[in-house]
Design a protein around this nucleic acid. Structure first.
Lengths: 217, 217, 217, 217
DNA sequence: CATGAATGAGTTTTCATTCAT
DNA sequence: TATGAATGAAAACTCATTCAT
């Protein structure tokens, strides 16, 4: 009987608690913003006491660093998925991944959290080294898609890194506009603009991305 | 008139002091980041004491709000200049205005300060309303250039607002990548990419922007 | 008998654990000092966890009190030994017992621990009553030696308690100087001075303590 | 008019506050002991707020260090006085300075405070270097008296440093016994014993210190 | 016995703000 | 204006102690 409890109760208990702290940190960050985030704010989003945060993470900095890793890992998991081989489809999936439609508050909130960390990174070397690698991976992912497309003859011969960075930073810029200024649909308008000006331009032959304003490419 | 009030004062002293506080705030913000910015940090960049800041601005929030207005005014002054009528030249000037080359630390620092404020805006309505208008102006400026170009027959018929926002948010995204992650030349690469994929595409007829990688268009 | 109580226990396990805790407390006290001593510090010198300390001693105060008793018992054991009857030899042994030569770090450390407890005693009645008795015993021991010497006609007729306290407090003062201020050899210099000014003076007749600076009396 | 106010109001204001903090620290230290001394305890002995302590001394350590210097300075002032040239009188004054009679609670309290700091010095290099110099001065003072006495032919030829350290450490040992264990009169008994066994022995010729138990030598 | 997890009560420290001058 | 001194509120962090297992 107690064995059963152990298996559930303490088996993953620590990991559960760590996850709970990460979640509490996430919610507190979104609610208060990095600049005003206190350990108390995090504890308030947590069903445990404030000192417990220090039991698991010695300092606030250490906790925030773990949080950065956690956020990155989360995003990394999202991007990895791709169930198709077609470069155009993969590019579509990649770009669509940045679109946040009204009502998707969770995703907007998440994007904001990442943005907050990104700005802190300027003043925090540990943050920067982690996020820097993360953003390079993001650029690398789209660059790989482009490279594959070029090789497959789907895209004209362009520098995958340059165009990849162009697409990525544009998407991030639009998302920031949407998230910080409440510019609704900005990320979707960016998707459409990229389809028209970039993807369409990359396509060899007469293939086009079709209607840009609709859901499908 | 203000001289009348204070016979022994220095006439423009108040304005000077306000300017000095804005400057100190700017330097302190860049050095410490919004999250760790204290009134003492600001006073340290100033040759006056901490209480004097409160003499001029009742609270820190009020000071920061004044600082936001100050920053926006500064930028506004920059963008207004345009000594040509040619839409292509004006677009070139607009886009080039976002390029920050290595060594231009002042401009990078300034972009960072603006970015810090932008992120705070999410949690501060006063900030947001001010910055929101500012960013709409920025988009409006490039949209006007495009509209003029379309009307002049230089650019093909596109929606000026959509393309303007595309260009603007892309530029800001690239600048953020450069500023926060130390991605050198990111803003210049964005300029080149926009020239190739957007401006070139907009041009009616055989006109092109020529060499994208060089200094001139 | 205690084995009966705990069939699967290790017989003297409890005592062993108590001894281990006392040892850990001793090492932790010497390393960190009473003022900064934490239960964690003690647990760190132990191969067991912090809560186990509370299993054996309800509170920190209780543990420290047990530690005081332990320290006193330890010292008591040392002083009891005396394999001679000659008062002069016994006095020599007593005084020499306070000499700590360079390299005898263990004894210096021990003296320091006792000193720390002594100072705490000022603010802790329980400590004081225990240590007070202890120090009275120490004074009593040397007083007895003197009394025996007087009775045996070896020492001239002095008040054993007064001279005993003089010798004892002087030795402790010198040891403190050595231990707290790093005054090497201070305890040995005290031994020599006591031999010259006190013991020599006490001796009846032409007997002298001989060379003071050497090992023997 | 305002000049008058300044001269009194703010002229010595800072020094007054510093002195008040030192005084509050002293009282709090005596009341609670170093091990349990908190900034709050100090503030409680002070008519100002807790943060003000940090305004004047950045950290608790810094405050305590200033306190050590303060204590030493205090003692230094006491010892410096000597209105006679006679070595024997000066030695009498020196030794008597260590006697604390019942009722002299202030002096007992002061001795305790110094003792607390002394024990902390073992774990605090800054404390130790300061106190070490202080104690060397104390030994040096009595050694000088002895040297003068030897030169003047009042004392027989002994090593002033050795005998000085003997006298000094003995006095401190007795005072510690009195202060920590409540051994009333211990310091006075030490005075008498030193007079009988040491001073008397040092005197050349038939001069003696006379009755030891009375006030005069 | 033994421990990882958890917590309440404190401790030092920070900081925006105010006050007396 | 200008500032040194002062403070209330809250911040991060510590620590003895307890609890569930």
């Amino acid at each position: 009987m107690s064995g059963e409890e152990d298996a559930k109760g303490s088996g993953e208990g620590v990991e559960d608690t760590h996850e709970a702290i990460m979640g509490a940190t996430y919610h507190a960050l979104c609610k208060h913003g990095y600049a005003h985030l206190t350990m108390q704010d995090i504890a308030d989003e947590f069903d445990k006491s404030r000192p417990l945060l220090h039991y698991h993470y010695d300092t606030k900095d250490e906790l925030m660093l773990a949080f950065v890793d956690n956020m990155i890992g989360w995003v990394g998991g999202q991007l990895a998925q791709s169930d198709t081989e077609d470069p155009l489809d993969r590019m579509e999936a990649y770009i669509d991944g940045f679109v946040i439609d009204p009502g998707e508050e969770d995703r907007e909130t998440f994007a904001l959290a990442l943005l907050e960390l990104r700005v802190q990174a300027v003043h925090n070397d540990e943050f920067r080294s982690r996020l820097s690698r993360h953003y390079e991976n993001n650029v690398g992912t789209i660059a790989d898609i482009i490279a594959d497309g070029v090789e497959a003859g789907v895209f004209r011969a362009v520098d995958p890194d340059e165009v990849g960075e162009f697409i990525y930073t544009s998407l991030v810029g639009a998302r920031m506009y949407q998230v910080t200024m409440g510019a609704q649909h900005a990320s979707r308008r960016m998707r459409d603009a990229l389809a028209e000006f970039v993807v369409d331009d990359l396509l060899v032959d007469g293939r086009t991305t079709g209607e840009y304003s609709g859901e499908g490419w």
